[in-house]
């Protein structure tokens, strides 16, 4: 194999990588969708402070998680590294969500100054993961 043939093959590999990574931008929709779900759920649960509010929040979670799971399962490409990105996003979200709900119920029931910023914070981990996925899908390197 000659030097120019090797360069040509490497260029082809790079082109394939770019094409495949571009098909990974679906994760941005998933991550940001998950973040929005968290925002709505935390606000519903925290600001209503009633059993009805908690039930409504759980219904929103059930509908959104089903929709997001179906959306994820239908994607034809799972780009490399997304499983780890997803795991980190969900792990951080779980920690923030758990802290928000537990501390909120005991110490800040219906306190807007607690629930609103924490709802925004709980939306960040998966949204950031989605943004990272979007950046990766656009990268040509």
């Amino acid at each position: 194999m000659r030097q120019d043939e090797a360069l040509d093959a490497l260029e082809r590999a790079r082109a394939m990588d770019t094409k495949v990574r571009a098909r990974g931008r679906w994760y941005a929709v998933y991550g940001i969708g998950y973040g929005l779900m968290s925002l709505v759920v935390v606000l519903t649960m925290g600001l209503t402070g009633t059993a009805m509010g908690a039930s409504a929040a759980m219904a929103i979670v059930a509908v959104c998680l089903t929709a997001l799971s179906v959306y994820q399962a239908r994607q034809p490409v799972k780009p490399l590294g997304y499983a780890r990105l997803h795991a980190w996003g969900i792990l951080l979200w779980g920690a923030v969500y758990g802290l928000t709900v537990v501390a909120g119920m005991y110490f800040f029931p219906q306190v807007t100054a607690w629930w609103v910023p924490m709802a925004v914070l709980s939306a960040l981990p998966t949204s950031v993961a989605g943004y990272v996925a979007l950046r990766r899908s656009r990268s040509t390197a």
Binding site: R12, A13, D17, V20, P76, V77, K78, P79
Partner: peptide
């Protein structure tokens, strides 16, 4: 082989790719 190299290069960028998408990519 050039075609196989392209197929493997595409698969190397993903955890999993569906057949129809790989066909269109290559």
């Amino acid at each position: 082989a050039p075609v196989r190299f392209s197929i493997v290069a595409a698969l190397a960028s993903a955890t999993e790719i569906e057949f129809r998408v790989l066909r269109d990519t290559v």
